Simulated assay, not measured.
Amino acid sequence: MNKQEFLNALEEILELDTNTLSGAETLADIDTWDSLAFLSVIAMADEHFNIVIQGDKLEQIQSVDDLVSLVQEHLSA
């Protein structure tokens, strides 16, 4: 998985400009991170990467980099 591709897909979900996210951002600090974005990330991971992210795992995520790591972890499993 290319991290930048993932960040671009996440930016689309969060309605942010392209190349806005670096990975260091805390999800709680992103105004558009809400329950709809949460569900959209789960759907995007399934659609683009053919992986299923459990909601309880996603709830533990604090930063964008943590989210990238979670997806990479699922891809390597």
Rank of each mutant, 00 (worst) to 15 (best):
M1F: 04
M1D: 03
N2Q: 10
N2W: 00
Q4W: 03
F6H: 08
L7H: 06
L7P: 02
N8E: 13
N8S: 13
N8M: 09
A9H: 12
A9S: 14
A9C: 09
L10T: 01
L10N: 10
E11T: 07
E11K: 04
E11V: 06
E12F: 03
E12P: 00
I13D: 04
L14V: 04
L14I: 05
E15D: 13
E15L: 13
E15F: 14
T18D: 13
T18H: 06
N19R: 10
N19F: 11
T20P: 07
T20L: 08
L21S: 08
L21I: 05
G23N: 03
A24T: 04
E25S: 05
L27W: 03
A28Y: 04
D29G: 08
D29K: 07
D29P: 01
I30Y: 01
D31P: 14
T32L: 07
W33E: 03
W33V: 08
W33Y: 07
W33I: 08
D34C: 10
D34M: 08
D34I: 03
D34E: 09
S35E: 14
F38G: 06
F38H: 15
L39D: 07
L39N: 12
S40N: 15
S40L: 11
I42G: 10
I42W: 12
M44R: 04
M44N: 06
A45W: 03
D46K: 15
E47K: 15
E47L: 09
H48A: 12
H48Y: 14
F49G: 00
F49L: 06
F49M: 02
F49P: 00
N50A: 11
N50G: 03
V52W: 02
Q54A: 15
G55V: 11
D56I: 14
L58D: 12
E59K: 14
E59P: 01
Q60D: 11
Q60N: 12
I61A: 08
Q62D: 06
Q62I: 05
Q62F: 01
S63I: 00
V64Y: 04
V64G: 08
D65W: 00
D65L: 00
D66F: 09
L67P: 09
V68W: 04
S69W: 00
S69Q: 13
S69D: 14
L70W: 10
V71M: 14
V71R: 10
V71L: 15
V71H: 12
Q72H: 12
E73K: 14
H74K: 15
H74S: 10
L75P: 04
S76L: 03
